[in-house]
């Protein structure tokens, strides 16, 4: 094969679900040339020690990500809006199970 360009395939992101019903959690990435190979490589690289019962592989270029410059406009406005947290509100007396 040699070190030619694209000798390892494209990049895929791997998400593992530990148990049915739980969220799929990102655990890393890998190289593969097609979907089936990506899935098999994910199985070999990330679930060898019983880490999961289901897998997602997604082409890395299909993921749209925010950039570091977005931190201000995207996330900081939430910091001074404490009323968005349930703990902001006083629970009226007599209300149970909230």
């Amino acid at each position: 094969m040699g070190n030619t360009k694209d000798s390892q395939g494209k990049l895929w992101e791997v998400f593992v679900q530990k148990k049915p019903g739980q969220p799929f959690v990102h655990c890393g990435n890998l190289h593969a040339f097609d979907k089936e190979m990506a899935l098999q490589n994910a199985r070999d690289l990330y679930t060898r020690r019983g880490e999961g019962t289901a897998l997602w592989v997604v082409p890395s270029d299909a993921i749209v990500a925010s950039s570091p410059e977005d931190i201000g406009p995207f996330f900081e406005p939430a910091n001074d809006k404490v009323f968005r947290h349930p703990t902001f509100y006083n629970v009226p007396e007599g209300v149970k199970h909230m």
């Binding site: 094969m1 390892q8 395939g9 890998l30 190289h31 190979m37 098999q40 490589n41 060898r48």
Partner: peptide, 12 residues
């Protein structure tokens, strides 16, 4: 192996 992932797959 031809590349890292496949190297691991075959040794597995």
């Amino acid at each position: 192996g031809p590349f890292l992932e496949e190297d691991l797959a075959l040794t597995n």
